[in-house]
């Protein structure tokens, strides 16, 4: 199963194993990482699963849908070009090694 790395705002990092078809958000919450709130449970409605995608990975992710784009404007932490909602990133084998940075705040 692919593993992905979450970097906390303080620079510490956590590498987590994902299970089949899981989103990055689900992997983070299943492993109890505090930096991802996911208040809406992955329904693309809350923007509390915001992440900054590592520069080397950004172009390798599938493009975002309009609703994700709109929601990111309302994210609590600053929106950057690398911003994504982690509930919308489904981990496929080619994303093994993905690096996601968590923002200072989610609400």
């Amino acid at each position: 199963m692919p593993a992905i790395t979450f970097i906390h705002p303080d620079g510490k990092s956590d590498r987590v194993e994902t299970s089949d078809g899981e989103s990055a958000m689900q992997a983070a919450t299943r492993h109890g990482l505090d930096g991802i709130l996911a208040e809406c449970g992955g329904n693309a409605m809350c923007a509390t699963c915001h992440v900054y995608v590592d520069a080397s990975w950004l172009a390798r992710l599938p493009a975002m849908a309009d609703d994700e784009d709109a929601l990111l404007d309302g994210a609590a932490a600053e929106r950057q070009p690398a911003s994504r909602l982690s509930c919308q990133i489904v981990i496929t084998p080619d994303l093994d090694g993905l690096v996601l940075k968590m923002p200072e705040r989610q609400v």
């Binding site: 919450t29 109890g32 208040e39 329904n43 409605m45 809350c46």
Partner: peptide, 20 residues
């Protein structure tokens, strides 16, 4: 508690649009 995933606001396409 990690409350993410509770269904008090529903889930899926009809999940509460007023949850925020």
């Amino acid at each position: 508690r990690r409350t993410s995933g509770h269904v008090g606001f529903g889930s899926g396409i009809h999940m509460c649009v007023g949850q925020l």
